[in-house]
Every structure is written in C-alpha cells, then in structure tokens.
Amino acid sequence: MENSKPYRDFGDFLREVFPYKVQKISINAGFTCPNRDGTKGFGGCTYCNNQTFSPEYCHTEKSVTEQLEEGVRFFSRKYPEMKYLAYFQAYTNTYDELNSLIAKYEEALAYPDVVGLIVGTRPDCMPEALLDYFSALSQKKFVMIEYGLESTLDRTLTRINRGHTQAESEEAIRRTAARNIYTGAHLILGLPGESREEILHHADNLSTLPVTTLKLHQLQLIRGTRMAREQAEHPEQFHLYTVDEYIDLVIDFIERLNPSIVVERFVSQSPKELLIAPDWGLKNFEFTAKVNKRISERNARQGRLLNPPSSEPVLPGM
C-alpha cells in the first residue's frame, strides 16, 4: 500500500482526487428496477426496502434540483466552501430511456458547486450507449458507477431475487473500468446460506476485478421485506452477527482484499423504525472506530492474505 494506514480509506481517496472538500448528496430520481416492474421479476430483492437508504431531504416528488438545493443548504451551513457530488442512490439509476437519464444527470451537473456524479445501479443495466456518455463525461467531471453486486455466488443471487448473475457483474465492472470510469461495488455480508469461508471468498473474487471502491454492508432484516418473513419462518438459515463477530469478519475480509481497492464503508445504518435486527446501537463512525481499534490489536492489514495475486484495479485519471 502507498500509505501507512492499514486499509485504503475513502476519505484519502477523495483527497487524492479533489483539492477541496466534497460531500455526496443523495438523490431519488424516481427510477424503478427490472426485478420490480416485471422485466426480470416482481417484488424486488428480498432484503430491499428503499426507505432504508433515502435521506429525509430526498423524496421522489421533488425534482433533482430541489433535492440538491436542500442537501446543499444542509451541508453548506458548516462548510460554505464545500463542493458536491450528486449521488443517484435509490433503486436502479441507469434504468430508463437514454434521453431521460441524461437529462437528469445534466440537471444535477448544472447545479452550482456540483463537481461530479455517483450513479448507483445494477450490473445488468448498463447499455453501451450510456457507457459512451459516462466515458465522455469522465473526461470533464468526476464520474463513479456503483454496482450493487451483493454476493459473488449465483445461488445466493437467485435466492435473494437479484435477477442477474456473477458473470454479468464481472462483465459490467470490466466494461466500465475499461472506459477509465471509477467503478464501485456493494456487497452484503451475511446473506442466508453463505458460510463464513464463502463470504471471505467474495474478497478473493473482487480482488481479481478492476474495482476502485467497495462498500460492505452487514445483513439487516427490514420490516415489510420478504427476507424478514423468511427469517421469522426459518431462523436456522440465518446468522445475524454480533458487533464483535462482524468486526472480525470484515477485518478478515479486507486482509484478503486487493490493497488498491478503496474501502468506502464497513456497515450501513437503517432507520430505527424499519430495522428488526441486528440492532447494534452504533453510528457508522462509532463502528469504524471499533474496527480501527481491533485492526490495531490484530496488527491486520488490507491485502496481507491476498489470494490469488491479482493485477491492480484501474484508477482513472481525471
């Protein structure tokens, strides 16, 4: 690794890219998903309730501009010199007609002090024409495409109703990185039916791919989801981690992870009123502090147990 930190940190990555402070502002642009509207299936992923990751200022009935305005107002009070990344977060943000998609991205980029886009999507929803647009845009602005992979096991992807395969995940990541676009990935650790070793093997798989950033999320059971009903009916098929168990799991995970992949986060935090379990009572920064303390105790380091050796992920220039 290039620095003395035990893992590649997202804040450091942003400081490498930008000469000023930047803040993501989440946007709900009113999209759906192909496994919700019948194209691939109905009902969405079994764990999914999108209220869990949409901030209060981010509502579908508001325009992209209105959502950015509210987000900027919130953050600029403390940091008047802050610049912003428009984060298209909820549902599948590349799943619409090309002209409609580009209009929403351009609306965001036209807002004062917005210096780039982060677009969350699925591996099976990245047409070549849209990659052409992002590739051209990335020559002028910061562009990151975040792919929700959730698992690298096809049997798990089928079980949670993702509607895509691991092969599609790998293809989308390679196609995107080949265009010199920053490429992110999401994984959920602890999905039902996956052993501890299978979870850690996700790190081996990702380490062979040109991934720029990685978000790790613990499995959370959310009210009103099919997965919550499954767990109530078959609790023996689920392992809900304690804080200490999960901390050791993520440290074992990053020790097997290519050291050039930026670790953006270890956990997600669902609204209290929607969360069934596990309820750790920790904010994200408190959990990260515990991880860092445990890393120090274990003398752990990202990539220490990297297997197999792999080429470094593509990190595009601006």
Results as ranks from 00 to 15, higher is better:
100 S>G: 08
105 Y>F: 01
143 V>Q: 09
181 I>E: 00
226 R>V: 03
172 A>I: 05
109 L>S: 14
109 L>W: 08
162 R>Q: 11
170 E>A: 14
224 G>V: 01
190 G>P: 00
182 Y>D: 03
165 T>S: 14
122 R>A: 02
205 N>I: 13
114 V>A: 10
124 D>A: 07
161 N>F: 06
215 K>Q: 05
152 T>G: 10
113 D>I: 01
217 H>S: 05
101 L>W: 07
164 H>P: 01
222 I>Q: 00
187 L>E: 11
166 Q>P: 01
153 L>A: 14
226 R>F: 04
105 Y>S: 03
185 A>K: 11
150 E>V: 03
168 E>A: 12
179 R>I: 15
159 R>V: 10
107 E>N: 09
119 V>A: 05
181 I>P: 00
102 I>M: 10
192 P>H: 11
144 M>V: 13
212 T>P: 01
191 L>Q: 02
190 G>I: 02
126 M>L: 14
185 A>E: 07
105 Y>T: 01
151 S>Y: 06
113 D>C: 04
189 L>G: 11
117 L>A: 06
162 R>L: 07
130 L>N: 10
115 V>I: 14
106 E>N: 08
199 I>H: 01
142 F>M: 08
174 R>Q: 10
185 A>G: 08
162 R>C: 07
232 A>W: 02
146 E>T: 03
100 S>R: 15
150 E>P: 00
130 L>V: 04
165 T>M: 11
109 L>Y: 11
173 I>G: 06
190 G>E: 04
140 K>V: 11
221 L>D: 02
207 S>I: 02
218 Q>C: 06
167 A>Q: 13
121 T>N: 08
110 A>G: 06
130 L>G: 06
166 Q>M: 13
155 R>E: 11
118 I>C: 04
181 I>V: 12
108 A>V: 09
200 L>M: 10
123 P>H: 09
161 N>E: 14
167 A>T: 10
137 L>F: 02
163 G>T: 10
160 I>Y: 01
102 I>S: 14
147 Y>C: 13
131 L>H: 01
111 Y>D: 02
152 T>A: 15
138 S>N: 13
193 G>P: 09
136 A>L: 12
112 P>D: 05
207 S>Q: 06
122 R>Y: 02
234 H>E: 15
158 T>C: 10
217 H>K: 07
177 A>V: 12
129 A>R: 14
180 N>P: 05
150 E>D: 14
115 V>T: 10
192 P>A: 08
220 Q>S: 10
217 H>V: 05
133 Y>T: 09
99 N>R: 12
125 C>K: 03
185 A>S: 11
164 H>K: 12
224 G>C: 06
